[in-house]
Each structure stands twice: as C-alpha cells, then as structure tokens.
C-alpha cells in the first residue's frame, strides 16, 4: 500500500477557475487540470521568487516533494500552451491556509475572525457569501 499523501498547505487559492486559448484553429483540444498545490508552487517559486526550501516549508512538504509538485506544474502549463489546451484549476490535495470567503455580489475576498458576529460581506453587506475553500 502506498504511503498516504500529505496535504499541501496553500495560502491563497488561484483567483480563476481556468484559462482558455483563443484564436486556435482546432475546435477543442481538451484541457489539463492544474491542482491548487501546483498553482501555489509556481506562485511561490516564480512569482514570490522564493527558493525551494523556503517554499516547501511554507507548504508543509519536503523540499523534494515541492520540487516534484513544481515540476508537474511547469510541465502541465507547457503542455497546455503547446497543445493549446484549456487550463482548469482543480482542488487537488490542498489544505487551505485559512478560511477565506468570497462575496457572490461584489467578488471581494475576506476572512471572518472568530470574534466577529456578522456573517455578511464587509463591502456590500450582502449575505450571499461562500467559502472559497469549497470552490
């Protein structure tokens, strides 16, 4: 039996549900699924410019595992670009860092600290809020 997969800590989930190529001559080339942890690894290494050791600590995995997740992310994105495939963000084996909510009316993201009583959007006061973690 394989060893159980540790959950990877993700600070903020991707702000999109997917990317689609446009102007491609093929009708549908299919899609690839980019996992939350893959998106996070790419963000930490190439956007926040962290080294792999720091990034792996932040995600709660070993350096080697981080490198594997990161490699898989790069390969998937390269595949999507070359084969003009759609990219979809998929939950994967992620553990969300915090409980983030999103407002369905004004799309603002926010946290609700435990001492807060009201459960509405801090911007537009809409009560139509959703946990981002369940997206």
């Amino acid at each position: 039996m394989p060893r159980r997969r540790r959950l990877r800590r993700v600070v903020t989930p991707p702000g999109f549900k997917g990317y689609k190529p446009y102007g491609s001559n093929r009708e549908s080339a299919g899609y690839i699924e980019l996992l939350y942890e893959e998106y996070e690894s790419l963000k930490l290494a190439d956007y926040d410019l962290m080294n792999h050791l720091e990034a792996s600590k932040l995600m709660g995995v070993s350096r080697a595992t981080f490198a594997r997740i990161y490699e898989s992310a790069r390969r998937k994105i390269a595949k999507a670009l070359v084969e003009s495939k759609e990219i979809r963000s998929v939950y994967g084996n992620a553990l969300m860092d915090k409980n983030w909510y999103v407002c369905d009316e004004c799309f603002v993201r926010f946290t609700i600290p435990p001492r807060h009583r009201h459960r509405h959007c801090p911007m537009c006061r809409s009560e139509r809020i959703e946990l981002v973690n369940q997206l």
């Binding site: 600070v11 702000g15 932040l58 860092d97 915090k98 799309f107 603002v108 993201r109 926010f110 946290t111 609700i112 600290p113 435990p114 001492r115 807060h116 801090p122 911007m123």
Partner: peptide
C-alpha cells in the same frame, strides 16, 4: 503569508479587493 498569520492572530479582518 506572515502578515496573514499575524492579522489572524490579532482578530483583524482582512478584505481583499482586486
């Protein structure tokens, strides 16, 4: 990430506008 952890600890609500 560090600011998030601390703000959470001090019960400060974070709001992100894009």
């Amino acid at each position: 990430p560090k600011a998030k952890d601390l703000l959470d600890k001090f019960n400060i609500q974070m709001v992100i506008i894009q």
